[in-house]
Amino acid sequence: MQFKLIINGKTLKGEITLEAVDAAEAEKKFKQYANDNGIDGEWTYDDATKTFTVTE
Rank of each mutant, 00 (worst) to 15 (best):
T11Q: 10
T51D: 02
K13E: 06
N37K: 10
Q2R: 15
Y33A: 03
L5R: 00
G38D: 05
T51Q: 06
G9M: 12
F30V: 10
A26I: 02
I7W: 14
E56M: 15
K28T: 11
V54E: 00
E42K: 11
W43L: 04
G41I: 02
L12N: 07
T44I: 08
K31W: 09
K29H: 11
A26K: 00
A24C: 11
L5M: 08
F3R: 00
G9N: 15
N35F: 10
K28V: 15
Q2E: 04
G41A: 02
T11M: 08
K10L: 04
G14A: 14
E15G: 09
T44V: 15
L12P: 06
L18I: 14
L5F: 06
E15T: 08
A24G: 15
N8T: 14
Y33F: 07
E25M: 08
G14I: 10
A48E: 09
T51E: 08
G9W: 08
E15N: 14
T53N: 04
M1Q: 12
G38H: 06
K4Q: 06
A26T: 01
I7S: 02
W43N: 00
A23G: 08
V21S: 14
I7K: 01
A26L: 01
K4N: 07
A26Q: 00
G41E: 01
E19K: 07
W43E: 00
G38T: 06
N37W: 12
N8V: 04
T11D: 04
K13S: 06
T49I: 10
I7T: 04
T44S: 10
N37H: 11
L12A: 15
K13I: 08
A48C: 05
F30C: 03
D47G: 07
A34N: 03
T55P: 01
E15L: 12
A20N: 03
A23E: 10
L18G: 05
T53S: 15
K28M: 13
K50G: 10
T53A: 13
T11P: 06
G41R: 01
D36G: 09
I6N: 06
K31Y: 05
T49K: 09
Y45F: 07
A20Y: 04
I6M: 05
G41Q: 01
N8G: 05
A34C: 03
L12Q: 09
L5W: 02
G38E: 08
M1R: 06
G41N: 01
E25S: 10
I39Y: 06
D46K: 06
D40S: 10
E25A: 11
G38Q: 14
G9E: 03
F3Q: 00
K10V: 11
F30T: 02
Y33D: 02
I16A: 07
G14N: 03
N37F: 05
A26W: 00
I6P: 00
K13G: 15
E27Y: 15
K10R: 09
K13C: 04
I7D: 01
I16M: 14
T49A: 12
N37R: 12
E25N: 09
K28Y: 15
F52P: 00
D22Q: 06
G9I: 10
Y45V: 02
A23P: 15
E56W: 12
L18P: 01
T44E: 15
D40A: 15
T17G: 07
A26S: 02
G41K: 01
E15Y: 11
T17P: 04
A24S: 13
N37A: 14
I7N: 01
Q2C: 05
I39E: 02
D40W: 13
A34Y: 02
I16P: 01
K50Q: 11
E42C: 06
E42N: 08
A23F: 15
E25P: 01
E56L: 08
T17Y: 08
W43H: 01
T49R: 15
F52T: 01
E42A: 12
F30R: 00
G14Q: 07
K50E: 03
G38A: 12
A34W: 03
T17A: 13
N8H: 09
V54N: 01
T11S: 09
I39C: 03
K29L: 13
K4D: 04
T53L: 13
E56H: 12
T51I: 07
G41S: 01
K13D: 05
M1T: 09
A24L: 11
Q32V: 12
F30S: 03
I7Y: 07
D46Y: 12
E19D: 05
T44R: 11
A23K: 04
D46L: 05
Y45P: 00
K29R: 06
L12F: 08
D46S: 09
A23T: 15
L5P: 00
M1H: 08
D40Y: 12
E56R: 05
Y33E: 02
D22C: 03
L5C: 03
V21K: 12
I16K: 09
Q32K: 15
E27F: 13
N37T: 11
F52A: 01
Q32F: 13
N37S: 09
N37I: 11
T49G: 11
K29V: 08
L5V: 03
Q32A: 12
E19C: 05
F30L: 08
A48L: 15
Q2F: 13
F3H: 02
G9R: 06
D46W: 07
E19M: 12
E25R: 03
D40K: 14
E42V: 14
Y33T: 04
D47R: 04
W43D: 00
K10T: 06
I7C: 03
V21F: 15
T49N: 11
D47F: 09
N37Q: 11
E27I: 10
T49P: 02
T55H: 07
T17L: 14
Q2D: 03
D22Y: 14
A23I: 12
N37C: 03
G14K: 09
G38S: 08
G9S: 12
A20I: 04
E25T: 14
A23Q: 14
A26P: 00
K10P: 03
A26C: 03
N37L: 07
K50L: 14
T51C: 04
K50V: 05
Y45I: 02
Y33H: 05
I7A: 02
I7G: 02
A34K: 01
L5Y: 01
